[in-house]
């Protein structure tokens, strides 16, 4: 095992071609779902990826999970390049990197029992003898807080929280090091969310897991993540240590996102004044020139439409891509 970060993503790009024509297909453009993203995740930490729908956060997760082949850049896992793995090595990689999906209703095959779902990784990887699978599944289920009785149930016979536990049990079957949690709690009731988050945190400590936590719910991310990256239109606009980023956001987009989070106190919320972000997210097929956020940015200057801001260090362990974030900003 190398001493570097567990996951290192450099200049990752995922451009989906847009084609036209029925007979002679030609590429007329590309959706730049992910457009040059860098970040790293240290072993044992929970790294958050936040942003509006369509900003590319799920695509990054899919690239890491080898569900998409990135069109550019590199993903190094534990020191090894995995962005373009030969199919013979993918299987070994999958033992170490697993996922918990968003929707506990559609992430479990409705025609398989819990035992078949959670036992499938063992079967596929021949990780243990066939007759050992029921026992292994039982252990995993109890690790995830489910009684053994659910083993022969079908997904539709369980509640959302229970299904998500089954999804977590399946992800843990191969004893992975790294878990991509793609909106893992977004589809659940708030009370169930808290339970699942607690379960994920307990498991991380118990099993020494590392998480990439993809979410749009900022309060959840703030609670669970050590470090956070904020994405906008396929790019990271701000990245840093979670607590300080939430306490003192530098990038105007992060600031706007945080302001949009309602305060859970009606008295405060009623009088609270904030500017909602104007307009819609532009099309990633044709992103605005310069800083992609400038058409919606309250601090935009004429130069923002020409110059693409680079990520710069704007504080201890904090980087942001906006010229307004520097120490001289207060004067401007």
């Amino acid at each position: 095992m190398s001493s570097g970060p567990l996951l290192q993503v450099d200049n990752l790009q995922m451009h989906f071609p847009v084609t036209a024509g029925m007979v002679f297909r030609r590429q007329v453009g590309a959706v730049r779902a992910v457009d040059g993203v860098d970040f790293h995740i240290e072993k044992g930490e929970t790294f958050g990826l936040v942003g509006e729908s369509g900003c590319g956060k799920t695509t990054i997760g899919r690239c890491i999970l080898k569900l998409e082949e990135p069109t550019g850049g590199s993903i190094r896992f534990d020191g090894d390049e995995v962005a373009h793995l030969p199919s013979t090595e993918v299987k070994a990689y999958r033992r170490r990197v697993q996922a918990v999906f968003q929707d506990p209703y559609s992430s479990l095959n409705p025609r398989m029992t819990v035992e078949e779902i959670v036992g499938e990784p063992f079967l596929v990887h021949k990780a243990c003898a066939r007759d050992e699978i029921p026992g292994r599944v039982r252990d995993l289920l109890s690790l995830c807080g489910l009684p053994g009785r659910v083993q022969d149930r079908y997904p539709h016979e369980m509640s959302g929280g229970q299904r998500q536990r089954v999804g977590i049990a399946r992800a843990l079957a191969l004893r992975p090091d790294f878990l991509v949690c793609d909106e893992a709690v977004s589809a659940l009731d708030v009370s169930i969310q808290a339970q699942i988050i607690r379960l994920l945190e307990d498991l991380r400590e118990e099993l020494g897991l590392t998480y990439l936590f993809i979410a749009h719910d900022l309060s959840v991310v703030r609670h669970i993540c050590h470090r956070v990256a904020v994405m906008y239109l396929g790019k990271i606009v701000e990245i840093g240590e979670s607590e300080s980023l939430f306490a003192d956001p530098k990038h105007p987009y992060t600031q706007a996102l945080l302001e949009a989070v309602p305060v859970p106190d009606p008295a405060v919320e009623k009088d609270r004044q904030f500017e909602p972000i104007k307009g819609e997210v532009p099309s990633p097929m044709n992103p605005p020139g310069g800083c992609a956020f400038h058409p919606r940015c309250p601090k935009a200057m004429p130069s923002c439409s020409d110059l693409t801001p680079a990520m710069e260090t704007v504080g201890p362990d904090r980087r942001a891509a906006c010229p307004h974030t520097g120490p001289t900003q207060a004067a401007a």
């Binding site: 697993q98 929707d103 479990l108 095959n109 399946r170």
Partner: peptide
Amino acid sequence: EEQYVAAARTVGVSDFRIMWRHILPN
């Protein structure tokens, strides 16, 4: 496009088994 197919691929299930066990029954 269902998530359980993505989940099966993530687990490392082969194309044949995905078609046979995950898609066909549904």
